[in-house]
Simulated scan of single mutants.
Amino acid sequence: MRFTGRVFRAHNPRWSFTPLSGDGAALHGGRFNPVGTPALYTSLRMETAWLEAQQGFPFKPQPLTICAYDVDSEPVLDLTDPSSFNDLGSSPIALACPWEELADQGKMPPSWELAKMLTANGVAGIIVPSFAPGATENDRNLVFWRWSDSLPSRVIVIDDEKRLPATATSWSQAENK
């Protein structure tokens, strides 16, 4: 399918100068990308972006920079619809696997296997349920493996007023305090 619309992402303010980077996901890995594979994790609602970013601190929220993105991307699979799995040789259970635990044990998480198969078939991204603490069925994410500032998978941060810092140097003064 083609996804057109707005998505959201909550960033650590330190990295707000790279709002389109998948480098953090590549460095640490994620539910749908192993270490070394860039991914852009976004949410369909601003509240979901907040939940996703605060997973480690649900009772002590940390500062975040929330960005909105305009998206026009294809192909995108909606894996919140169970019928989407009919031809994939997978199931919704793969999405919810304990990916960190499996990766720590040196095992390939089913969610990574699914992502590998989908990216090999040219899929740009997937819509998936949020697994963040407190998430409801309304909380969904759009995870990109392919994105750029042009079609067929265009993802553009909304920053008409140029509020986001252009480089990391804006943080150098804060580090010296």
Rank of each mutant, 00 (worst) to 15 (best):
I126D: 03
P63E: 13
W112T: 11
A96I: 12
D87H: 06
V157R: 13
L27S: 13
L164D: 06
V123Y: 03
I66S: 08
G24P: 04
E52R: 04
S172P: 00
A168D: 11
Q54L: 09
D78H: 02
D70M: 02
D149T: 12
E161G: 09
T37G: 00
M46K: 11
S16E: 13
G56P: 01
E113S: 15
L51H: 06
C67V: 07
T48N: 06
R31V: 11
C97S: 15
P92V: 12
T80I: 08
R146Y: 10
A49V: 08
W147Q: 08
S43K: 08
G36M: 13
P110N: 15
A174N: 06
S91L: 06
P98R: 00
V128W: 02
A120G: 14
K177W: 07
F8R: 01
P129H: 10
F59P: 00
P98I: 01
E52Q: 11
H11Y: 08
D72T: 10
E137W: 02
D139Q: 04
G24K: 00
F59E: 11
A39R: 01
L164M: 12
T80F: 00
K177N: 12
K177C: 01
G134Y: 08
A53P: 03
A94S: 14
N12I: 03
K162F: 12
G89W: 03
D78T: 05
E137C: 00
R6P: 00
S91M: 08
